[in-house]
């Protein structure tokens, strides 16, 4: 249970960075940390005690197949990681454009974003 709790701590730290920081690159970093936490959490849910990687080798019987860790979260996280990269590229592109337009990364100094 402590492993899950540490994952939630990591997620909460990312959420705090996303909400409370004023620098937009810091917000992006917070989102990346949340991404890591969710991916790690899903993989940890699928871990089996004493488990091995789900790769079938020559001469394995069905009792050895029972020792595999859960492959389904791994398959979903695999694409989730790559999507995280794409979203990060989009966010950094926006950050670069905002910096060129306003000359700062600070949210409170960008007057055009004020409501």
């Amino acid at each position: 249970m402590t492993v899950y709790f540490l994952c939630v701590v990591l997620l909460t730290m990312g959420l705090y960075c996303l909400v409370a920081k004023k620098n937009i690159v810091k917000k992006v970093i917070g989102l990346v940390i949340m991404d890591y936490a969710v991916n790690l959490y899903l993989i940890i849910i699928g871990y089996k005690k004493g488990g091995v990687a789900p790769v079938v080798e020559r001469g394995m019987n069905s009792a050895m197949l029972e020792r595999f860790v859960d492959p389904l979260p791994q398959a979903l996280v695999l694409t989730s990681i790559v999507i995280g990269l794409g979203v990060l590229a989009l966010m950094v592109a926006m950050c670069i454009r905002i910096y060129e337009r306003h000359g700062t990364f600070d949210m409170s100094q960008i007057s055009k974003l004020r409501g």
Partner: peptide, 13 residues
Amino acid sequence: LGAPDIAITQLVV
């Protein structure tokens, strides 16, 4: 955690 595919992808990403 027994996920070598994920580890390689995470390294590259």
